[in-house]
Design a protein around this nucleic acid. Structure first.
Lengths: 243, 243
DNA sequence: AGGGATCATTTTGCATTCATTTTTTGTCTT
DNA sequence: AAGACAAAAAATGAATGCAAAATGATCCCT
């Protein structure tokens, strides 16, 4: 008996749906492959090459490419193939704002349903993150920080929101990670204080307040990231013009 | 060679955006077709039938179906074809909350960039809507109401947000429309007052405040819609229950 | 020798074909 | 007559083939 495929008529969750068929498998692998940054931005990706790399024919590959294009990870130019999407400054601003909005929403919803246990878990993560902060462990801080935000999204009890959040997060994954290392010591301290405010509002289940704090917190992240990329990012900031 | 099936369905309309390719054309047409509610919820949609209806082969159709599935409009069950996605009560709650979050975000962003002219336009729409309210013109009210919310989203100056908003709106389009007619006179009056508060906050560019008001406004809409569908909707509410 | 046109090669888009899986139908057994 | 098993029919998933477009290379003309 395999992985408990529900009876007919019952919707299959998006994550389960993909694994069975080949195009779904390819979709998952290709998405990871792109999100992880294995293909340089704006690079042309010939179908044939991907096909032999994955050992499949073009049909399921093309289906996966269409989906990835719909998700905004790649661009499909008519008769000219697929390119990894290049994010210009404006694109990044828009995506960061959306992430801010989604987390802001997640925080508001989380206040309606979060359990004490979940809050305790987030508190533990918070202190763990504080430890990384004190040790100036950027890498550890980044990952625990991610887990905190993911925990808030999970506490919102909204699977559709979680999926949308994950999708948008994938689109700016590389940038987010690289931008994290741009964090100045001062901004880092501010972020820690903001996280304390987040935790405080969460404990009090102050939805509207938490929504505001989260948005502002992410907005500040956005500013830091954009500034960083404007200074360092030549490859990324080069995109804003068309083609 | 019988390859060219002439004028089997409908001629190609190039008026649609940049979608010159066949799969893109099919995607737009199929999406509209599903969103407009031409296929009953949960109904099986054989590829063959759609192919001859659209006058194309299965390849571009299947590509379009994959994208629609990624958008959440249809479901693809392995080896069992495509079905129009059925939204259970929980799905609707989640989607309404996301719409609330996105509009809340849009309002906040709009306050940063909206022009006096845009506000004036929204004011005109508001009074037009008020007229429909006084005349109990449900249909007119619904459409002007939509335009107001779309105007706020447009004023956010975030194309990615606009696209995401449109996508989620498509998923609950039918329900939204039908739920609108469930509006009790009392709730209708409340909605009008909320709209006045929205306009007021927008004039003052009070982003955080507008964000709160919009979320609450949409939350109230959600409650009304879910109650309505719980009472009337047998087909829609039938999905979540276990088999 | 340099710029541009023409032709060959590569790549993409779509149709068709082949292989499984599912669904239906028909028959047989209890 | 109802249920179960089996075979046929239909539908889906993936691969291949073919035409059109794009890319690159060669050749011609000034």
């Amino acid at each position: 008996m395999k992985s408990t495929i529900p009876e007919a008529g019952v919707p299959i969750t998006q994550s389960d749906r993909q694994e069975a068929s080949l195009h779904g498998e390819i979709l998952l692998r290709l998405r990871d492959y792109v999100v992880e940054g294995n293909i340089p931005e704006g690079a042309r990706v010939p179908e044939r090459q991907l096909c032999e790399m994955l050992g499949i024919s073009r049909t399921p590959l093309r289906e996966a490419l269409k989906v990835l294009a719909a998700e905004g990870l790649i661009e499909l130019q008519p008769n000219r193939g697929a390119r990894v999407r290049q994010l210009g400054k404006r694109d990044l601003e828009e995506l960061f704002d959306i992430m801010a909005g989604l987390e802001s929403l997640a925080g508001r919803l989380a206040c309606e349903a979060i359990t004490d246990e979940e809050i305790a878990t987030i508190e533990r993560l918070h202190y763990e993150m504080y430890g990384h902060y004190l040790n100036s462990d950027m890498h550890g801080y980044f990952h625990v920080n991610q887990r905190i935000h993911e925990s808030i999204v999970a506490a919102a009890r909204n699977e559709t929101l979680r999926a949308a959040y994950a999708s948008f997060a994938g689109r700016i994954r590389r940038v987010r990670y690289s931008a994290n290392f741009a964090r100045k010591r001062q901004r880092w301290g501010e972020a820690m204080r903001e996280h304390e405010a987040i935790l405080d509002a969460l404990r009090r289940r102050a939805g509207s307040e938490l929504s505001d704090i989260l948005f502002q917190h992410l907005r500040n992240k956005r500013t830091a990231a954009i500034e960083h990329l404007a200074a360092v990012g030549d490859d990324i900031a080069a995109a804003p013009a068309d083609s």
